[in-house]
Design a binder for these strands. Structure first.
Length: 401
DNA sequence: ACTCCACAGGAATAACCGGGCG
DNA sequence: CGCCCGGTTATTCCTGTGGAGT
């Protein structure tokens, strides 16, 4: 046991660990070179270059499946732009918001205010953490931009979740603001979206002004993924610390659905962590497989573990009901509630939770019509029962058999 | 061809919370 | 302090519907 520990220390001391640069395997790492995206980089840079002529660049709209390099391309180009802007001492501000991370529209506005320096600058017209109406916050931001004659590049990642949450009003006011701010500053919007049909959800006016310029990111092919991983492992790993087979397997696994580079790299990272932990000399296929398993198992476990009580009860009810349809599940759920002396929620709420669980990937639902016997949802649990038990045993030890 | 089950899932509304504002 | 604002959870009420049984 203690020799293991010694081993770890020895290895670390000798600098013999597998990983040379762990940053390079993080999801938000942007490498110097983005293979197969040179064209996109160029186009983006072209569009944004008008900033230096003090003109507003076209709004830009990027889509593509997750892990196709949208965010990476934008980050890279925008970083360079910022650097250049600093050299030239222009008033360019780049704002990066991830709409998914910021849980509400208001938080998005708050972050924008932080980034452009409004909140440091002006005490009476700042955008506080909460308390203002959306409209007031928006207009304070716009006024500040105009007053300071800022050139703002506003990057909104996962823009679809912003619109889902609070509609396109904000986007509308931003795009419209541009038409009014002929003098002074401007906002150029860069929207990034994973879903291709997102545009249909928008108000036509917003749609046309948001996508003055569009770019579609195609999924990577398996060969391309391999190349990407190859490049990345050169940065991340010490020489010989990763086998060819591991790289190939990662790319194959990540490419199975659609070429998702993020998934491929996460896979590689977790595999490397596992390999390090067991003191292996190099990362190979076995670790990749283990990593895959770990990733699949862990995500739902975490969600479930700190879900609200009734959500857990619903999951438990689904697990306990055999051949679960909504009605049966609701029955078991109410009896579970009685058992725990909890007031049961309405069926409406429970169906909402089930569709939420569907979204989270914990269950799968199918609307099935059984003719005479009505129309209902057939529910399947997508994660292993053991995981469910593990996640819920703290709360309902007595109910789990 | 018609009926009618057993729900799905939208809309309106209420209750509550956290947090700034005057 | 009470008030406003937006978010989230939950309820109530509702309209819509695929297809087995008749």
């Amino acid at each position: 046991m203690s020799s293991d520990i010694d081993n770890i220390f020895d290895k670390a001391a000798k600098g013999k660990s597998l990983i040379k640069n762990d940053q390079a395997l993080k999801i938000d790492y942007v490498p110097e070179k983005l293979p197969f995206r040179e064209q996109e980089e160029k186009t983006l840079a072209q569009v944004l270059s008008t900033t230096f002529r003090s003109a507003r660049p076209s709004n830009l709209f990027l889509f593509g499946e997750p892990g196709t390099g949208k965010t990476a391309v934008v980050r890279k180009v925008v970083e360079k732009l910022e650097k250049k802007a600093k050299e030239l001492k222009t008033n360019v501000k780049v704002v990066n918001v991830n709409a998914k991370g910021a849980s509400t529209a208001y938080k998005v506005l708050y972050e924008i205010a932080e980034y452009i320096g409004l909140n440091q600058e002006d005490k009476t017209k700042r955008v506080p953490f909460t308390g203002l109406s959306i409209g007031e916050a928006t207009s304070r931001i716009l006024q500040f931009i105009q007053k300071k004659e800022l050139s703002v590049i506003l990057v909104i990642d996962e823009i679809d979740s912003l619109v889902d949450k609070s509609g396109d009003d904000i986007l509308y006011s931003f795009t419209r603001a541009n038409q009014q701010m002929i003098e002074g500053g401007f906002i150029a919007l860069i929207g990034i979206s994973n879903s291709l049909d997102f545009k249909d959800k928008l108000d036509p006016r917003v749609r046309s002004s948001l996508s003055e310029e569009e770019m579609v990111f195609k999924p990577y092919t398996i060969d391309q993924l391999r190349e990407i991983l190859h490049e990345r492992s050169k940065i991340a790993f010490n020489h010989g610390a990763i086998s060819e087979g591991a790289v190939n397997l990662c790319s194959a696994m990540a490419g199975r659905e659609h070429g998702d580079a993020r998934k491929a790299i996460t896979l590689l990272r977790v595999a490397a962590e596992l390999a390090e932990r067991e003191n292996a000399v190099k990362v190979d296929e076995k670790h990749v497989r283990a990593a895959q398993e770990k990733i699949e198992k862990n995500a739902p476990y975490d969600v479930l573990k700190d879900a609200p009580t009734h959500m857990k009860l619903v999951v438990l009810a689904i697990a306990k009901t055999k051949d679960p349809y909504t009605g049966d599940v609701y029955d078991t759920y109410t009896s579970l509630c009685r058992h725990l002396e909890q007031e049961p929620l309405t069926q409406r709420r429970v169906t909402q939770m089930i569709s939420r669980l569907d979204l989270l990937g914990i269950v799968a639902t199918d609307v099935v019509s059984q003719g005479r016997y009505g129309r209902s949802q057939k529910i399947r649990i997508k994660i292993p029962l053991a995981t469910v038990k593990e996640a819920l045993k703290e709360d309902f030890a007595s109910l789990i058999d």
